[in-house]
Computed example of a mutant assay.
Amino acid sequence: MRSLIVGNWKMNGLSGALAEAASIDTLAGELPGVEVGLAPPFTLLSPMAAMVHHLSVGGQDCHEASHGAHTGRISAAMLAESGARFVILGHSECRAEGDDDARVRAKVDAALGAGLSVILCVGETARQREAGEAKSAVVGQLAAALPQGEGSAERLTIAYEPVWAIGAGQTPAQDEVEAMHRAIRSSLVAHYGEAGRLVRILYGGSVSASNVEALVANAMVNGVLVGGASLTAESFGAILRSIAGSGRAD
């Protein structure tokens, strides 16, 4: 299974940042063993999609409605028309701002209906982990949002992002990452049958060049979702090279 490395730029990047994307795109072309994606802010999506050749460009979120009086929101069809090939949904930052499981599921359905692939984020809070509820929380989020339609699994990627690790400079122990990814895989197989074995499961949360090789050394980890370290070609490139040189690229 080919490793997938996706950079989520969040609310970062003016037009000058397109130069960084161009450098990342060039590097992606030199590392054919990995698949690379970038999710810039919406203002950069169209120009970035028009200039890259070796990576895919995606959105950071979308509204569940196809159109309407939703000031400041972006529909899945708008993302697709702007050149997006995927969208990140269920990110903890969006969940913290009101996205419950039902809304995440509605967004997933809308994105698939618009022809996009979906990176579905799941993850537990520090309180849930301390209470011994981490696995049930993650599996519950997953069960509530998994699409049902035929072929849905083919356009789905799961990103396990423990909420307490995002931006905190810490990651779970390797056996904890493996256990959670196994639980996610079991849920996918239970839902989709054998097709669930082909859904990639990424790890996200304070991913950096210093820890990514250890993370992807685990056969249960099919790639990473990167935040701040994806903003420059220097830092994101170090992550790409590390995975490409780890023997886990494909």
Rank of each mutant, 00 (worst) to 15 (best):
G247L: 13
G33I: 07
Y192Q: 02
L79D: 04
W9G: 11
E97F: 10
E213G: 15
L112S: 12
A165E: 00
A114I: 11
A22D: 11
Q141L: 09
A179F: 00
A76D: 05
L142F: 08
A102P: 02
G29W: 03
Y192H: 01
V87D: 10
A238Y: 08
L215R: 06
I5N: 03
A179E: 05
D175P: 00
S92R: 02
D101A: 15
L18N: 07
I74L: 08
G29A: 05
Y203M: 04
G16I: 08
L116F: 12
A76R: 03
G245N: 12
E154G: 15
A110T: 12
H67W: 11
A179N: 03
S208M: 01
T43W: 01
R105D: 05
V224Y: 05
I201G: 02
H67V: 08
L231R: 14
Q60W: 09
R103W: 11
E64I: 00
G37P: 06
E154S: 15
S82Y: 04
H53P: 02
T26H: 00
A238V: 08
I158W: 04
P40I: 00
S210P: 01
A114N: 07
G149Q: 09
E178A: 15
G115R: 13
Q148W: 06
M51E: 07
S235P: 13
Y203E: 04
S186C: 11
L89T: 13
A143D: 15
G227A: 04
V221P: 12
E35K: 04
R155D: 03
A21W: 00
E30Q: 15
Q148A: 15
R85V: 14
G113E: 05
G237H: 09
E213H: 08
A22T: 09
D175H: 09
K135F: 04
L202P: 14
V139G: 05
A244H: 14
R127G: 03
Y192M: 02
A39H: 03
A153N: 07
L116R: 13
G13D: 05
G205P: 10
S117W: 09
G167K: 07
R182K: 13
L79V: 13
S208R: 12
A49E: 07
A19I: 02
L45E: 01
A183H: 13
M78L: 14
K135C: 14
A165S: 15
E176R: 14
G228S: 11
Q128S: 03
I158R: 02
Y160F: 14
S46Q: 14
